[in-house]
Design a protein around this nucleic acid. Structure first.
Lengths: 118, 118
DNA sequence: TTGATATATTCCGATATGGGTATACGATGC
DNA sequence: GCATCGTATACCCATATCGGAATATATCAA
């Protein structure tokens, strides 16, 4: 138990730049493995291995077509990432800066009125 | 060159569940290390190490206060993640489903007219 | 059947990683 | 100065992971 599993979820799958490249390449449609090999300039086994990881977290689907294996993006698996990181959007979005100020003011007011719990 | 660097960017920093927990814990304000230790139920050295990674990718800032080290969230470092994953939002958002249909129709039409390249 | 093409799997070696434990370092208090 | 608290670092170990090369598997062609 020296190291927690890593490639088991979308966050880890996507932590690898090559895998993000693969997903990006699949963004505009299905692609065969060799197609990706050419696009990414990686060795074929490496690509297959990355695709396996992406498959295991559900980020891509496969479909056999003759001797080819066509991979297709399944962005649904990325939703958890989006959901998580969205919570931090306020940290960089000016749109939220103003909102934060307002919330602060409200909190102050509540405290002044009769805020108690917590 | 057997393995690419991993913890060097925000994607990797955040791939580790504990580190996400730490960020989540910092969401509502500065916290001292021991505070996080208690909150996460991890050993102190582990927490310090995770904090180091988060610091190195800029996801947290530190401030010395007496013998304490107060860590504060810096969500700005997470923006690249948000930006990247946002591009895939259409994959799960129904709001985009209809748009995709329309685009498909347009593509079909173009092909019928005089589509050629690729 | 044999051969070629497309892809997946296996084995290997190098390295990064995370947890555990001990220890070093810095600030504070006595 | 010495003890203590809060935190960071060093060291070790087990394992995961990546890339590379070789090989296995599947499909199609002749």
């Amino acid at each position: 138990m020296a190291r927690a599993a890593t490639t088991a979820d979308a966050f880890n799958a996507v932590a690898e730049p090559r895998r993000r490249q693969i997903l990006d390449a699949l963004a505009d449609g299905e692609r065969a493995v060799n197609d990706l090999v050419r696009l990414l300039g990686l060795a074929q086994p490496q690509v297959s291995k990355h695709l396996r990881v992406l498959r295991e977290v559900g980020a891509v689907d496969v479909r056999g077509e003759g001797r080819q294996r066509l991979y297709r993006l399944n962005g649904h698996a990325l939703k958890p990432i989006h959901d998580w990181v969205k919570g931090y959007e306020r940290s960089w979005s000016e749109r939220f800066d103003r909102l934060d100020e307002v919330l602060e003011e409200l909190k102050d007011k509540e405290r002044g009125d009769g805020g108690d719990d917590e």
